[in-house]
Design a protein around this nucleic acid. Sequence first.
DNA 1: TAAAAAATGTTAAAAATTTAACGTTAATAT
DNA 2: ATATTAACGTTAAATTTTTAACATTTTTTA
Lengths: 213, 213
Amino acid sequence: MEKIELETVCIPVSVIRRLPRYLTEAQRLCQEGVEWVSSAILAKTLGLTSSTVRQDLSYIDFKGISKRGYSAIGLETALARTLGVDRDVVCLLVGAGNLGRALSMHEGFARQGFKIVGVFDNNPAIVGKKIGRFTVQGMDDIAPHVAAGTVDIGIISVPHDAAQDVADLLIKAGVRGLLNMTTAHLQVPETVSVVDVRILLSLRELAYRVRSR
Amino acid sequence: MEKIELETVCIPVSVIRRLPRYLTEAQRLCQEGVEWVSSAILAKTLGLTSSTVRQDLSYIDFKGISKRGYSAIGLETALARTLGVDRDVVCLLVGAGNLGRALSMHEGFARQGFKIVGVFDNNPAIVGKKIGRFTVQGMDDIAPHVAAGTVDIGIISVPHDAAQDVADLLIKAGVRGLLNMTTAHLQVPETVSVVDVRILLSLRELAYRVRSR
DNA sequence: TAAAAAATGTTAAAAATTTAACGTTAATAT
DNA sequence: ATATTAACGTTAAATTTTTAACATTTTTTA
C-alpha cells in the first residue's frame, strides 16, 4: 500500500512502524552495556518473530554478523541515522486541554528530541495563561510561527469536531506532519503525513477484546 | 493471525481496530440527525474504500438496505452492541505523571463509559496527593482493588523500565486488559489483551515520514 | 408494470505482511 | 586445518488484509 522512499530503497509501512521500537530497544541495550544482540532475542523482547526482525533490519543500512548477531551500538547508530534522530523535531501543540497540557509538560519528549515551541488554544479563557514554561497563544498566532519555516510537526489535541479545522489551519500555514490525538479522521493532501494516536478508540478496542473471551 | 471470537463468527483484527471508528462516526451522524449513510460516504469520512466498509460491516449483526445505505441509528446500535458500549468499563490507572494525570482528569473517557476508579503510583512523594477527584494510592493498594472483581482494564502510564513490573502486578491481581502507554513491549499470558498507545514511537514514525519526502 | 439506477452483500483477485526454509558466513572446537 | 554450529541474509511460501468485480435487492421512474 503506502510506501516511503529513502534513497533508492522503499521501506514498507509495516516496517517503518517498527523501526522506532528497534531503536528504543537498541538504546536500552547500549545503556545496559550489552554489546551484541541476536534477532531471536530482539524478537522475544519486542513480541515478534526472528524472521520479521531480520527482514525488517535488512531495510536499514547495517549488517549483522553471523554467529554473533547485531552490534547494539551499530544498530542504534544505523536506526538513529535512518530515523533522523540526530536533529531535533520542532513541534507545535494545538489544544491545551488535559491531554495537551500533559504533552507540553512531558520532559520525555523533549529529551528524545521533540521540542514543543508553542502551545495554542482557541479558548479565550485559556489564552495568555501559563502552562509549564509556555504561555498559551491564540489560534491566530499559529501561522506566523509556522511561516518561520522551522516547524516540522503539529500535534492536534482538540475536541473531535475542531480537529479538521485545526488540521486545515496547520497545513495552510505549512506544517507537513500531524500527530492526530483526536478520534477524528483527518483529510489531508498527499504531501502531508498523519499519524494517529487515538486513545479513546484504543480503549474501545481493548474493552471489546477483554469482553470477547 | 490473531483472531477474536464473537458468538460463532471470527472478526479479523484489522476489522476490530476499525469498528470503534465506525461507531464514533455513527454517533456523530445520529447527533447531526442524519438518517442514512452509504458505504461510499463512510469510506470518504474515514479514509477507507467503500469495499472495506461493506466488508467490515458484514461482520456485525446488521444489514444495510440496497439503494439507501445504512441506517445511522441502526448502525450505531449494532456497533454499540458488538463493542459492548452499553456497560461501563472499569479502569485502574497506574502512573501519575503528566500523562497519567491528564488521562485521569479527562472527562471525555468517563463520558464514553470508561470509568477510572483508582490512580496509583510508586512515588511516595505523590502517594496521598490529590489529582482531580482522586487520591493517589500506593502500588500495594492495587491488588485489593482488582480482587473485588469489577476492574476490566489497567492503564499503564509509567516510565519504560517500570512497565513490565506494573503489568505483572496487574495481571497477578487479575486484570485481563492492559492499555500500554509506554514504549515498552509487554510480555503477557495469552489470556490477557494488550493495546499499545505509544505516543513517543508515533512521533518518531511521523518525524521519519515528514523527513523522507 | 417493467426498466433503470443506486447501493448492498459476497466472491474472488490483488496486494501487503508475516513466517518459514535454507544457503551462507563467521566463530569455535577438535 | 577442518568440522561444527549459531546466526545472518534472502528467497519463497503462507497468511492476512485490501480492493475490485459483480450478482442481487430495493427504490424510483417512465
